[in-house]
Nucleic acid binder design. Structure first.
Length: 174
DNA sequence: ATGTCGATTCCCT
DNA sequence: GGGAATCGACATA
């Protein structure tokens, strides 16, 4: 859930990738440093990094100092779809039109749609919700069926089955 | 100070 | 399916 002065945007996480301790593909691989420091924080902390023009949002899964996180690769938009479309258009100005079906199907697009940038690096996603400016998680009601595949866009440990996609969702990345 | 690379996206063929 | 965009972190000098 994302709340700011414009309103509330929310969605259901439908696609993730895990970057567990010891994973050669993980940013935590070299140990704590200025870039990946938040990965070694408490579970529920946001780890946000920049890749080319995009940002990617991860959730630390803890425990503290273990250096592991889950990348949010796609969400199914629920609330504030108009705001997401606006934010996506703002983020891609001068580079074509934003397809309403490509709202948040990709880790960079998730951050565009929810206006997540480096300012949320280290944010406590389990903390008190600030009604003016917030980003937080809510629990699922039921455990869904999930398909497991290999991860996308990495060069190391490509064969590891660590990508998780909600079964039959139409909102995952391609 | 300089060079390289990337957990991506978008446009073009 | 290929290449450019674009910038911060990190490694090297």
């Amino acid at each position: 859930v994302r709340v700011d002065e414009h309103g509330t945007r929310s969605g259901i996480i439908v696609e993730t990738e895990a970057y567990p301790p010891g994973d050669p593909a993980s940013h935590a691989r070299p140990g704590p440093n200025a870039r990946n420091g938040q990965m070694f924080g408490a579970p529920g902390t946001a780890y946000v990094y920049r890749i080319h023009r995009s940002y990617c949002l991860n959730i630390v899964t803890g425990p503290c100092r273990s250096g592991q996180a889950v990348l949010i690769r796609a969400i199914e938009p629920r609330q504030g779809i108009d705001l997401m479309l606006e934010a996506r258009r703002r983020a891609t100005v001068g580079r074509g039109v934003v397809d309403a079906n490509d709202l948040a199907n990709g880790p960079g697009r998730v951050c565009q749609a929810l206006s997540v940038d480096l300012g949320f690096n280290g944010w406590n996603l389990l903390g008190q919700t600030n009604p003016r400016n917030g980003l937080y998680l809510l629990p699922r009601r039921r455990r869904p069926s999930i398909d497991v595949t290999t991860r996308i866009g990495i060069s190391r440990a490509r064969e590891a089955p660590l990508r998780f996609v909600l079964r039959n969702t139409a909102w995952a990345s391609r």
